[in-house]
Computed example of a mutant assay.
Amino acid sequence: MAGAQQQLTTEVDGQTMKLTNLGKVLYPQTGFTKAEVIDYYHQVAALLLPHLSDRPLTRKRWPDGTDAAFFFEKNAPRGTPAWVRTETLPTPGSSTGRDEASFVICDDVQTVVWLANLAALELHVPQWRIGLSDHGKDPQADLVVFDLDPGPGASIVECCDVALALRQLLHHYDLEGWPKTSGNKGMHLYVPIEPASSKDTSAFAKQLAEQLAEALPENVTANMTKALRPGKVFIDWSQNASAKTTLAPYSLRGADEPRVSTPIDWDEVAGATTPEDLKFLPHDVLARIEEYGDVLEGLYDDPQPLPQS
């Protein structure tokens, strides 16, 4: 789509768009350009959209590349095209004191490409959808997420061991986990559920994290205190709070190289022996899709009731 020229006017799904600064290097360590970012997001959009659709989107933008300043953005930026869907929603826990924002809702390929052109490398969404709630006032989650974060001396390999144990615990509640890499050092485990209050999903996630920490005290902590994390995996259950977001599947990371938060299957989780086994760049992800299809296909097809505590 995007060539070597600095700007290009093109059509994406019938929408004329102007793409700019295409030759700008956004990942200086690898020379990965804005054109390549846009091309990746365009190619992966069909698999990315089910995880963004109807969810308020928080973007993390690196307009001058990942070795320069970044910023988080909740409000739709100035100059947002009229064809981009926006929704004004409450923002509980806002650090600026504002109580609402005009969020971008990414429901189509055009919006994915527009976001990539803004150097919105990271796409973060909550575990709830707008259509399931009273306009965001009582968010009803359709996912529980466990964020497995390795402390010093641990890696994604240790996260895999914890994920396997967590999967067995979930089976006790007739629930299934769907793993993906975080694109950083850890991994995420999604659990599809019938819509439930974010307060209840947070309580359930905390309960399971604490159960596992009690069962595996040498390997797991459910406590946010950093002093307790060396050599262990922190199960961050707090990502289920209505104000919290998690990096979407197939999103890039704003790191030294363009790593991707990549869905993986349980055989890969069980077989990982080094962090390199679970590091995926855009070309790796596109090749995986070509070979295996969407590893998260069916994630939302069979939600189960949230167990009563």
Rank of each mutant, 00 (worst) to 15 (best):
A4G: 05
Q5N: 09
Q6Y: 04
Q7V: 12
Q7S: 15
E11A: 10
G14I: 05
T16H: 02
M17L: 14
L19C: 10
K24T: 11
Y27T: 09
Y27C: 10
Q29P: 02
Q29Y: 03
F32V: 06
T33S: 14
A35C: 10
A35M: 08
A35I: 08
E36I: 01
V37S: 03
D39Q: 15
Y40P: 05
Y41Q: 14
Y41M: 12
H42D: 14
A46R: 14
A46F: 07
L47F: 09
L49A: 08
S53P: 03
D54H: 10
R59W: 06
R61C: 11
W62F: 10
T66N: 01
T66D: 03
A69P: 03
A69Y: 01
F70N: 13
E73Y: 07
P77S: 08
P77F: 04
G79H: 11
G79Y: 04
T80N: 03
A82S: 09
A82E: 12
A82T: 06
W83K: 01
W83F: 08
R85F: 02
R85N: 04
L89M: 09
L89D: 10
T91P: 08
P92Q: 15
S94Y: 06
G97M: 09
R98D: 12
E100V: 00
S102Y: 00
F103E: 04
I105S: 03
C106T: 14
C106M: 14
D108M: 14
V109M: 12
V112A: 08
W114M: 11
A120E: 13
H124I: 02
Q127I: 14
W128C: 15
I130G: 05
G131Q: 05
S133C: 08
S133G: 11
G136W: 00
K137G: 04
Q140Y: 02
A141D: 05
A141N: 05
L143S: 07
V144K: 04
D149P: 02
P150T: 01
P150H: 00
G151K: 07
A165F: 01
Q168G: 05
L175M: 03
P179W: 01
P179Q: 02
T181G: 00
G186W: 07
M187K: 02
M187H: 07
L189R: 04
L189P: 03
Y190W: 12
V191K: 08
K199S: 13
D200Y: 11
T201G: 02
A203P: 00
Q207A: 14
A209N: 11
E210D: 15
L212P: 09
E214C: 13
E214M: 12
E214I: 10
A215E: 15
N219E: 15
N219C: 13
N219T: 13
V220Q: 12
A222Y: 07
N223M: 14
R229V: 04
K232I: 11
K232V: 06
V233Q: 11
F234H: 15
I235L: 05
D236R: 06
W237L: 00
S238P: 13
S238E: 15
L252W: 09
E257P: 02
E257I: 10
P258T: 07
V260R: 07
V260A: 13
I264D: 00
I264M: 05
D265F: 10
W266G: 03
D267E: 09
A272V: 07
D277A: 13
L278F: 01
K279R: 15
K279S: 06
L281M: 12
L281T: 03
P282R: 04
D284I: 04
L286R: 11
A287R: 14
Y292T: 13
Y292K: 15
L296D: 10
G298C: 03
L299S: 01
L306D: 11
P307F: 11
